[in-house]
């Protein structure tokens, strides 16, 4: 579904993403792991058009999307969340999601309804008319997902969606992600919590110092010596 070829991003002398060629198969959940600073977020920014690659291409459903703007890529059906959630602070929870739901030439009323449905879908707990600047971490993380889901993505990219949540909340959110995948959304997720990635993913890609270290099923990756070294070594 999504393919990167020789994708590279340099910041001055730092090579944050280094010659990355990966493929995200349709319908699956793909995990993307790697130590802090491995280049996971930068890879997200490259795919979604927030950064221009120094080299390489991104192909989505056979179409070259390397030089498209973020909003164009979103319109194609690739939606992402941000590692540090970006709520629209002065707007209500519903209105936050409405912005994403308005895309398809929908009227305000229809978009409002869709926004509320989407919030139900991600199991948002709390009053939908609260302003976003009064939310707690758990609510922010769910709102971040709801915003992205409201754009009707075929590929949803989650950057540390469950980070900072307690195990109980984490478990609930995992169920939400599984459900979204069951409903036909392909998922690429960056995650630090091993049990979450290993439990959810069909395949896992390991990034280290900008390069793809290895990829495979959760089991293969867990038994890979290099991966163990990278994680124990840091």
């Amino acid at each position: 579904m999504l393919k990167t070829e020789n994708l590279t991003k340099r910041f001055g002398s730092v090579v944050a993403v280094d010659d990355v060629s990966i493929e995200i198969p349709e319908g699956e959940i793909t995990g993307l792991i790697g130590p802090n600073g491995a280049g996971k977020t930068t890879l997200f920014n490259l795919i979604t058009g927030f950064y221009t690659p120094s080299n390489g291409t991104v192909t989505y459903k056979g179409e070259d999307i390397t030089n498209l703007a973020p909003h164009e890529i979103s319109k194609k059906g690739v939606s992402r969340t941000f590692q540090v959630p970006k709520p629209l602070n002065q707007l209500s929870v519903t209105e936050n999601v409405v912005v994403g739901a308005l895309g398809e030439g929908k009227g305000r009323q229809a978009a409002m309804e869709k926004a509320n449905d989407t919030l139900d879908r991600v199991n948002f707990q709390g009053d939908y008319s609260m302003t976003a600047n009064s939310l707690n971490v758990g609510q922010l993380k769910r709102l971040e997902i709801a915003k992205a889901v409201a754009t009707d993505p075929d590929l949803l990219m989650l950057d540390e969606a469950v980070a900072g949540l307690n195990p109980d909340e984490r478990g609930k959110l995992v169920n939400v992600i599984e459900k979204l995948n069951d409903q036909g959304i392909t998922i690429l997720m960056v995650e630090h919590v091993m049990e979450v990635v290993m439990g959810l993913s069909n395949r896992v890609i390991v990034l280290d110092e900008g390069k793809v270290l290895t990829e495979g099923t959760p089991k293969e990756v867990q038994n890979d010596d290099e991966v163990i070294e990278v994680y124990l070594g840091t």
Binding site: F50, F82, K86, P87, A148
Partner: peptide, 9 residues
């Protein structure tokens, strides 16, 4: 950035 990610030109 959040707006752009939601498809806003």
């Amino acid at each position: 950035d959040a707006a752009a990610a939601l498809g806003v030109n």
